[in-house]
Design a protein around this nucleic acid. Structure first.
Lengths: 340, 340
DNA sequence: CTCAGTTACCCAAACGTTTGCGCCAAACGT
DNA sequence: ACGTTTGGCGCAAACGTTTGGGTAACTGAG
């Protein structure tokens, strides 16, 4: 640090530059403080984070694991995390695990090897074995996107979201419905499905097993899931797909089968991704506050780092009705097209 | 390091553990080497990266700036970067700049403050002022996604991609075409547009100014761009949108105007995002090798870090024809629907 | 004038590595 | 038997901070 080339000791400079306003009052005399501050930003001084981390055993780094960043849902959540982290003076480290357990393990070790202060998992599996281990090692972490076990998590109230979708379709008179349920290890898919199923059961319309198929979370997954659904038994009048990308794939499959979404069959997605509204037949979707989820997740982690108990938060979803399920909106849409 | 609690000096252990195979032969005797190695992974030893970075002045960290990670194009490029980085023993630090110059500056300082070894910019602006400054400061970096000035960059051959789109539409007999050209500061939009324009000019069909509108790169941007296009003058028979998300927005706008994509008007996008194929009317798109672009970008940076000269690479695009522009494919599509 | 109580600093250890240098002993050459 | 090489390792400095513990000089009370 060249800053002590104005005759001061490095420790004095350190105190001046990094004393918390609450404590460092007796750091130095105000003239010295001025001199130091001045020279510091004249030289564009930035403290060396490695030296600091080494000394303080704190890196101000946090590691984030997600299944795929190219999934807009996770990317948006991560944007929230990063934004909140920056506000708290933390930096984040994000990496893909493709939802593979061994990659999760490997990347976790990697990230921990970088001496992060804490972690955020966006790719928790329902089988909590791995997370339990991590917790047992004393690593501070929180979950976002998916919950698992009793670990603190910030997620959408997915069960409620599923119920909302069900409520909507029930209100439209649908009785034969099917679900593209996502991966069986993801709480998002599980909870959304069970909320949906639950509401239909309450309405006296239990959904048979073969009307529920699992699938990957991307467009291809939704496509394949829908194909399997269409291959077996009579056509449902509506399909609930637990994520928008999957819904888009499902729409593609329906199109391949000559079915018009919104007219021949209703489709409801989840997350209300920005694309939902722009689709040729706009997609009804349950909106989840993804960005906010990331922000809250980071805040929870900060709490944990401060020694408090992490809490689980359920964020409220909201149903956005569009033409893919609402006959009136669909009619309005085709009216415009016909009029052209 | 507790590992020297078997009687060895820390320096010896250090040598044993991190000698490059090429040189460290005289590090220690093979029995000692064994003992050290054994204890090391018994204890799960991981070297402290902060201490190491402090000592060696190398962090093995690289900073990545992108406009938005929630744009699947950038997210995919980043996945490539991260994958290649992991293979090279590097870790990456990614952050959004929302394409705002002051955020770019601020985040760059932040990232540099973290003492990264180099940077990758995915958000270069055509105005190279900022990048020139960074280069002048001696920061090693490469560009991906967009090129700018003479700085080494790995990008799609966007001009060629634009020509391909033009060629395709010319082949189909289109004469009145329009362009939703993206942000005016992004080389992607600029080059794709100019390639397209160039090819049409060569065919004796210059495209008038008012048929080219700028737009944001997201779905809303494409929507608004198309609206402006539709508000002025006679309808074109085809629209080239410089990115898929924008194309989806454009499709939404066309739908709002009662136009059937593929029948009343052709649309061609760019990037061949996974959604393109799944749209109700599948989208013709110029595929760009996004993942590979990220990988190559990282490799270029590694080269620069090794003191070599960074090179600019143009990756080959590929035209994927689908129903949104091809009458036959569109007919096949509606035939299926009608047949249901 | 003395002495306690500030005020404004400096000192030095410690964080965990890396690395040039040097030392000892064994091996080697003649 | 006596230099010389070399294998195997230890020493200590250095990287840039933070932080508990000083210690002078100054201040004001008695």
């Amino acid at each position: 640090m060249i800053a002590d080339q104005l005759g001061l000791h490095v420790s004095t400079v350190s105190r001046v530059l990094h004393a918390k306003p609450g404590e460092g009052l007796r750091a130095a005399s105000s003239p010295t403080v001025e001199r130091v501050r001045k020279l510091a930003d004249e030289l564009g001084y930035q403290r060396n984070p490695h030296a600091m981390s080494l000394r303080t055993q704190r890196s101000n780094l946090i590691g984030v694991l997600v299944p795929r960043l190219s999934d807009v849902v996770l990317a948006t959540i991560y944007e929230g995390i990063e934004e909140a982290a920056a506000e708290s003076g933390l930096s984040t480290f994000v990496t893909n695990t493709r939802d593979l357990s061994d990659v999760q393990r490997a990347r976790t070790e990697m990230v921990l090897g970088r001496r992060v202060d804490g972690m955020i998992f966006g790719d928790a599996h329902a089988d909590t074995g791995f997370l339990d281990e991590v917790a047992a090692r004393g690593v501070p972490f929180t979950l976002v996107n998916r919950r698992a076990g009793r670990h603190p998590a910030v997620v959408c109230d997915d069960r409620l979201g599923g119920r909302m979708a069900a409520e909507h379709l029930l209100g439209l008179g649908h009785e034969e419905v099917a679900i593209v349920a996502g991966e069986p290890y993801a709480s998002t898919g599980i909870d959304r499905t069970s909320g949906f199923v639950e509401r239909f059961r309450e309405a006296g319309l239990p959904i048979p097993e073969h009307r529920i198929v699992h699938s990957r979370f991307d467009a291809r997954g939704g496509h394949e899931g829908a194909e399997r659904l269409l291959a077996t038994g009579p056509l449902p009048s509506a399909i609930f797909v637990v994520n928008d990308f999957g819904a888009i794939g499902t729409i593609g499959a329906l199109r391949d089968h000559g079915l018009r979404v919104g007219a021949d069959i209703a489709v409801v997605g989840f997350n209300d991704t920005p694309l939902a509204a722009e689709l040729p037949v706009p997609l009804t979707s349950v909106r989840s506050p993804m960005h906010e989820m990331g922000r809250r997740g980071l805040h929870q982690l900060v709490r944990v780092l401060e020694g408090e108990q992490g809490e689980t938060e359920l964020l409220r979803p909201e149903l956005i009705v569009r033409a893919s399920s609402d006959p009136e909106l669909y009619a309005a849409l085709t009216r415009k097209t016909a009029g052209a």
